[in-house]
Design a protein around this nucleic acid. Structure first.
Lengths: 194, 194
DNA sequence: ACGTTACCGAACAACGTGTCCGGAAAGTTT
DNA sequence: AAACTTTCCGGACACGTTGTTCGGTAACGT
């Protein structure tokens, strides 16, 4: 007994309705009624599948997570570049998600995925004095920063260049002269070993 | 004619009531009625001063912004260290703000303050191939990452060490060997000049 | 063709929001 | 201290959103 076509169709419709609405409205400003109208679905039907608007969003993010994970794994030794390229394909969707408050939720999802991948892949020790957790978080936040900057630039640069930016930021940082006078002192000071 | 003491007292009470509630509850889950009860203030009085709960939050953040700005400026050539030290003083408040969803709003405020300071201080060009905006964002997000990591660690390390971490991440990045195999290829590849 | 399951649509209570008002209380001015 | 001004209270109100319920109808699976 396979899944009833109706439930599959209804859920799919609701997923896409939410995404479509997020494109134009802040997530917080979207009501269940809006979703129902967009999806042309009855109220009781909605609550038969999802317990709330947030529930619907979470299920949607599960799909996003699966998408990103498979993209990263398909990238082999170059997972971040694969992610950037993947974003380039589904650009308008991601771009829509980048604005407004709903972005925070999506950002967290991306964070979660990336952190999960990194924790699985990275060595336990050997971060040159940096706590492992801090190193992981730094890579994740840098990736997110580069990605959001790229989206705000409407993805003018090719994905490969963007990935190169990301790598340079993580591995080499910003050139010292450029950051003066903001980050001026303590350059040669010893870093604490924890 | 100075400001009526009552209005000053009422607003102050409401500010602190919101902060106190944020310590224990998610910002989204806090209702106006909660604030009224906590502050022992009438409903109509609340709306005489603030147009909504979000309005109250924004005004609260204005105070936070002023606080951070003065702290950063007082730090002279070492503004980030001054910020870390300031957070260490008012630790429990900041720590409370770090959890839950309300954190996103506060994070944005910190972002805004830092980005403003950076944009005022940093040179227009000379980022070694990095777009200026990307460089600014990277510094801001790295600062936020280090700060949040520190708070999650319950601020065990001294502020000076944390600031050193921040500097090293921005100026030198993570050691290459540590990041392999995640960031493995393209190390010596030329970086695009935009 | 049959039984099963999902959908609709309307109604419902519960809750939160923002506004309005008259009377009481605290502040300010002379 | 008295008169004047402003704020506060607290209760009531209309409104929108949420999540649930139920009988009738349509679509599905076998």
């Amino acid at each position: 007994m396979a899944i009833d076509r109706r439930v599959a169709r209804t859920r799919e419709t609701l997923f896409e309705a939410l995404l479509e609405l997020i494109r134009h409205k802040d997530y917080d400003a979207i009501t269940v009624a809006d979703i129902l109208q967009q999806a042309d679905v009855g109220r009781s039907t909605f609550y038969a599948h999802f317990s709330s608007k947030d529930d619907l969003l979470e299920r949607s993010l599960e799909r996003l997570r699966a998408l990103l994970l498979s993209a990263a794994e398909a990238g082999g030794r170059d997972p971040t570049r694969a992610l950037f390229e993947h974003v380039a394909e589904f650009g308008d969707i991601q771009f829509a998600l980048a604005g407004g408050r709903g972005a925070a939720v999506v950002r967290e999802a991306v964070d979660e995925v990336l952190a999960g991948v990194l924790r699985r892949v990275l060595p336990v020790r050997g971060f040159g004095g940096f706590p492992r957790e801090l190193a992981v978080r730094h890579m994740v936040s840098t990736f997110n920063t580069v990605l959001l900057w790229w989206l705000d630039q409407k993805m003018q640069a090719p994905a490969g260049d963007v990935d190169a930016y990301f790598r340079r930021l993580v591995l080499e940082g910003l050139p010292g002269e450029a950051c003066a006078p903001f980050v001026s002192e303590g350059l040669e000071s010893e870093t604490p070993q924890v």
